[in-house]
Design a protein around this nucleic acid. Sequence first.
RNA 1: GCUCGGGUGGCGGAAUAGGUAGACGCGCAGGACUUAAAAUCCUGUUUUCAGAAAUGAAAGUACGGGUUCGAUUCCCGUCCCGAGCACCA
Length: 867
Amino acid sequence: MSSQYQFSDIEKKWRLAWEKSELYKIEIDPNKPKYYVLDMFPYPSGSGLHVGHPLGYIASDIVARYKRLKGFNVLHPMGYDAFGLPAEQYAIQTGQHPAITTEQNIKRFREQLNTMGFSFDWTREVKTCDPNYYKFTQWIFSLFFNHWYDTLAQKAKPIKELEQHFSVHGSKNSCVYPGDFTPFSAAQWRAFSPLQKHEILNQCRLAFMDETTVNWCEAMGSILANEEVVNGLSERGEHPVIRKKMKQWSLRITAYADRLIEGLNRIEWSNAIKEIQRNWIGKSQGAEIEFVVRGTLKTLRVFTTRPDTIFGATFMVVAPELENLSEFCTEKNWPSVSAYANKSRNRSEIERMAETHKTGVFTGLEAINPFTGEPIPIYVGEYVLANYGTGVIMAVPAHDERDFAFAKSFNLPIIPVIKPAHSELDLPLTEAFSAKEGTCFNSGFLDGLSVADAISAATAKIVKAGWGKTTVHYKLREAGFGRQRYWGEPFPLVYDAQGIPSILESLPVELPSVEIYKPTGNGKSPLSALTQWVNTPKGIRETDTMPGWAGSSWYFLRYTDPNNPQDFASKEALHYWNQVDLYIGGSEHATGHLLYSRFWTKFLFDLGFIAWDEPFQRLVNQGMILGEDGQKMSKRWGNVVNPDDVCAAYGADALRMYEMFLGPITDSKPWNTQGIEGVSRFFGKFWRLFYHGENWAVTDIPATKEELKILHKTIKKISDDIENLSFNTSISAFMVAVNELTGLQSRKREILEPMLVLLAPFTPYLSEELWHRLGNSGSSNDKRIDSMSIHTTQWPMHDSGYLTEDYFAYPIGINGKTRAQIEFDLNASEDEIQAAVLGHAMVVKWMAGKPMKKFILVKGRIVNVVV
RNA sequence: GCUCGGGUGGCGGAAUAGGUAGACGCGCAGGACUUAAAAUCCUGUUUUCAGAAAUGAAAGUACGGGUUCGAUUCCCGUCCCGAGCACCA
């Protein structure tokens, strides 16, 4: 056995030993409290890892190991989000089946993870592309299909119950979300054809077919989700994206909008992520108001959050995409209006956003402002969006910047109705006064009211007069759930001759093999070419596949019981492992995965499958590790550091320790290759506490009070720091302790053995090795290595008795400036201390004969003399 | 533009129920060991001024104010950086 620290031999030896003994395999154990610590599901890319990737895994592994040592039964699994575009793109390029390349990537990924010494229970590995897994993804989809949302009960209910309701009561009191179908009676329902029934039920199902404007990317031959489009270009590849009507499956996430906002108050996530989700859901409280179109029986319904400004509404604007646009236009004006509308419709998002000034066309019609009775012109204008609110606005140019700009270009009247509470407006206005505080004027019965009061007063009047109602609108859109792609979960359904879908009960519906992976270009997936597969005795299959986020929206539940063939997870496993206690991953998933997972969790909660409705109790977003030049690590900049190289040169323990030492886990910070030397030197120093030259130097001599103080101070610090995920400071504490012990030439088992346990979560290999060299090896015929592994021992308790001091060297300040330091017994009285301080030569000097005004003593902290 | 974070040595960063600013590490400088180098170890290292030195003084946590015996920490204003959202009525 070498007296030197030879990390490569040590790490290899223990890696094999741990694997052989299945050290990290866990089972339900009702006698132990559970702890579930999870890393975000990685996509097994072929390009390998850089040192930034494992950052979160190292942090979660430290917590997992710490919790185990504290006596918790820790669930710490790993798996792969294996469906998705990159594997498919690779298949298109190389003609290799994505399942094969994905499997190769997974193998390599797992090797890299194992090198770094993570304590994953690999018997629980899940892959979203495995039929044994996606069988349940398909099953959950069928649950969405078979449920509707009851707005009164605020939960999902079986569609059968709704059909029952319809056949007895018709649509009356059905409380179905969103419920904007034409009302019908029970008799009518019973008389409806299957197709008519389907069309109504489709408007109720939580998974439904939606004719929507989608983001169509020609280059990729697919629809993209809103979050996959950045500034009118595809996030991946930066291809142009246009808007296109398409029928596809969607999930009715907006039914859960309120609960998704509310739940944020009950979870420990960063403010940033909560705020992003709130913005994304974009709830606004307001009113819908009917404006009569002058000279017709028609009305235009607007949505506004500022009914207090209605006396200043001087025109209206309708969105060009509005279906029934022609109804709100005179015949004479129709040619110019429809020309404008067509142009807008065909313009891409980028073009429309690039437009700096407001455009529009007069419709020739006027509406009556219900409050003033005055007619106001109706325009069609691109700046009004069809898919938000009602697609129609009342424009108040004095108090809205966009309306102001529009009024300026069309020379429309600008009537101010709100002024600052304690000053006057400068008239004429040069810009909109859009503050949400102020006082009403020019506003009839609202004059003198504050904005808040005027909103309630105006709303009350609107409701009382029957002009409208209070409503809530959301920015959140329904979640498009179809991709015209090959490498994803097939939908478990077929359509009959009339196009009515029905669920296939026998799961999984396996993804068939194809010859050509490339999208067809006509908007259909490669599966549509497989006529034999598509045509079944029961009907025609859906050929879209599910999006990448389908499998990742529930994988954390599967880990609790990953090999269960009957259920997505057993009741017992779900009950025992419960919520994820700590979830670590990047913040880029704020509006995708993290929102969808919360949605699915709430849905499964409604159905009674799980007893909690938030998946991740505590979420931590790790920062990025930048290249040494301070730029993002990428091949393009040539600044990528490969963890394999670091492990080979310094060892996995050093990589783990150094990544944690760089700075707070949540911060982005640059990598510095020289910095890792510091960690290496620390290992050397620590090792030399055990070895003096060639010789083993640890003794059983009892430790001194001073040594015990160092140990217990460190136990307390490390325990607190891990709980707070403050790993950088715990590593400093280790270094301080080792420096102090080296100074004392302290080589006692009583100190070093607990120090090793403290270090074990950070440096699993080094700690295990020295633990065994200390003699914790059990008998040679003991086959179960975990009975003697440091990773199954107990975390030391700190004894505050060793930490209390008898004396403290007080800094003595004169008017707040430290001028001297005097040691006092901590039990000394204030009078005693004051007398001694005032008699001290330095104090006398700095008081310079001036009288003392005040004497401040903070016990154990500071003394300050005020003169 | 709006929202949320954040500005501390040459660098990564410590320290906030208000109490000795700069822990720990990197880098740098000097020294020990060595024929020499590497490795290792030791010492110093916020800035300015005075001093040969020990040391002493002043300033200092983006900037300007305020509260306080005392502010990196709390309050007000300004500037800068990062992230998110962005015609959402």
